[in-house]
Simulated scan of single mutants.
Amino acid sequence: MRRYKVVSAVAAGCMLAATAACSLESNQERAERLATQGLRPEVSRIRAVVKGVLRTAWTSGDVSNRQLTSAMELHFGRFDKPRSGGMGIFAMHFSPAGSVGTDIVIESQSSDSGFNAAQAAVAACVRFSGAPGPDPAVDIHDVACPSTVAATNVRILKVADQSQ
């Protein structure tokens, strides 16, 4: 009887350890999760900057396409000449009604150190759109990434369409 209890306890311990090991995320999954977590706050930060650019353009009275393009590129760079952080504008859209759409590639990288180190890179291609005004609303929508992003070893994510 005593032997049965010992064997049962050992078997239960092994099953518990095996179950726990299966539920743990791999180093690659952890690196991707961390990279994704780094991307989401960046989207919020960019929205705030776009809002500021649109407010400043309205305040200055210069809402020309050229001025707005220059101001956006000053903050985010161009995708064909990326700034540090792997971010850049790859398209600008202007409507006759005065709204502006800025398509930006946002990349985030992370690595998980450990016995089997892993690295992950994720990207989102997002259009930030709004019109110059005293308190501009900036909408966020996913857009297709340029082929140069899709051709790399980067996992492309969608950020939920959000308006504010």
Rank of each mutant, 00 (worst) to 15 (best):
Q67N: 08
G38I: 02
G77K: 02
M87Y: 01
Q28G: 04
Q37W: 15
V50G: 01
D135K: 03
D135C: 01
G114C: 08
F76W: 02
A137E: 10
D112C: 11
E107D: 09
I140Q: 04
D135L: 05
D103T: 04
A48L: 13
R155D: 11
Q28L: 13
M1C: 02
S8N: 08
G133Y: 06
L24P: 00
G101D: 00
Q67D: 04
G130A: 03
Q37P: 04
A117T: 11
A144H: 15
R127I: 01
A71F: 00
G52Y: 06
D139P: 00
V53H: 01
L16D: 09
V159Q: 10
T59Q: 15
M72E: 02
R30W: 06
A151C: 05
Q28Y: 11
S70E: 15
C145V: 14
R47T: 13
M1N: 00
V49E: 10
W58E: 03
N116I: 07
T19I: 14
C125R: 04
M15E: 02
S108T: 14
K51Y: 02
A21G: 08
G77R: 00
R2V: 09
P41M: 07
V149S: 10
S60M: 06
A71H: 01
G98S: 12
Q119A: 10
H75R: 12
S64H: 06
A123L: 11
F128L: 07
M92C: 05
D62K: 03
P136D: 02
T152N: 14
L157F: 09
R78F: 04
P82T: 09
R3Q: 01
V126M: 10
A11Y: 02
A48N: 08
A71G: 00
R3H: 01
A18I: 05
R66D: 14
F79D: 09
A123V: 08
L74C: 01
K51D: 01
D139K: 08
